[in-house]
Design a protein around this nucleic acid. Sequence first.
DNA 1: CGACTCATTGACGTAGCTCAAGGTATGTGG
DNA 2: CCACATACCTTGAGCTACGTCAATGAGTCG
Lengths: 235, 235
Amino acid sequence: MLNRQQWKGMIFLLTPSYIFTQDFEPFHAYFLSKPHVRRTFQTDDFLWQPNEPFGRIHFILSGIAQNYVEHENGHRKIVSFHATGTVFPGYHEIDYKIESSLITVALSNMEVLEFTKAEFRTMFYENTELQAQVIDWFSKYVNLLLYETAHQEYNSSFLKLCNLLYLLLVSEAGKQTCVGCITQDAIADILGTSRVNLTRGLARLRSENIIHTERRKITVINPTALMEYCSLETL
Amino acid sequence: MLNRQQWKGMIFLLTPSYIFTQDFEPFHAYFLSKPHVRRTFQTDDFLWQPNEPFGRIHFILSGIAQNYVEHENGHRKIVSFHATGTVFPGYHEIDYKIESSLITVALSNMEVLEFTKAEFRTMFYENTELQAQVIDWFSKYVNLLLYETAHQEYNSSFLKLCNLLYLLLVSEAGKQTCVGCITQDAIADILGTSRVNLTRGLARLRSENIIHTERRKITVINPTALMEYCSLETL
DNA sequence: CGACTCATTGACGTAGCTCAAGGTATGTGG
DNA sequence: CCACATACCTTGAGCTACGTCAATGAGTCG
């Protein structure tokens, strides 16, 4: 993994990633040395109870969680995934209304180090490197959300789909995790489109031999052709 | 203005605000005491050149700027407004692709203190209170973007409009600034809807005596009735 | 007063939603 | 190991919100 100085020296610009992972791994030992509670979650457990404001911050030792918002009209918007070596939620002090609708659920069994806000605050103020990483984390999160709200929002549902498949399955961040294993329901909930409409987009890509679909699984068999469809912002 | 401790003690949850202002005002004197360049912008000036990555960070002494993303298909998405007493862009180190499409333009004459990233970094690491405020700023920005991407996205264009009018013109943050002076073009670009469709929404609210429209200006004359239309997430 | 910019309304086409029905894997209990 | 239930996926048909195009009106400014 690149360290901070190497990053700074590089010229390329980051595209968004839906999956957060490894970014806090350098602090693994540090976190272990500080006051915390080790916890485990089973698949489908909530990392905190719905309607409870963020109270605890987790460093994920293993497993993956999904973060989504439950809309009052019943829609569900999946925002991001958080896997091994990252921290979720991001450290912050102010509570927001929308956090009451934010739900984080374990997609697999998980092992985490749990910190109270106060415990994390103490670490934040004593560890300069951690401060830098928290800022990096926020900037990555903002980047993802900007991409969604200012870019994807204006794309047709087919273009949205191609972009997402590229970001999940082709670009670097996605390859490491197995998001090939994802239901079409979930993809629809990331894109904010209906499952029916999503299927039509997948049918088109399948007919053009760009992807192969199985139950719970999508494989890109022609990444180059997929890229041709993607928006410039995505590549 | 509330200080940090007072905020922490309060139970209410913050709704999103499109206008950032005053949050860094406590650091006014501190900023002045540190290395910076004082600059002025005229209405319609760019705070940095398009296609240039974020290099400078501004503390706004007076005036207001609009931040938007130019989509490759020609659409324009207005993300946020930044006025007196705030810092923009938020301090961060990594450069993202989408920043090349992010444009910040002065809506009025502006006076700012301009810092290089390095200058701001130095302040960030030496000033604990500033660290806290930068984190608060990011959390507010994330809150706004989450609201847009996970809530407004699923609302009809009429509901989106009611929510926006409420947040801009009725809720606390909006009252202080004069966003009553806004073109319908701009509102359409915030909502991601067409100007024509927006007009129809405004026509409905006008016919129900909830708002009054003039050239470049919208006044809410029946806030209670407007609130009735708003989504729960907004109130 | 002419030339802007900004706002309004009508007519029409379509992307994507909902409703509905059927098809194919996966898992479970007998 | 089969029967049945339960996900998960696919396709069709019709409806509607909203986009585009186009024409007109109404303030503002040099």
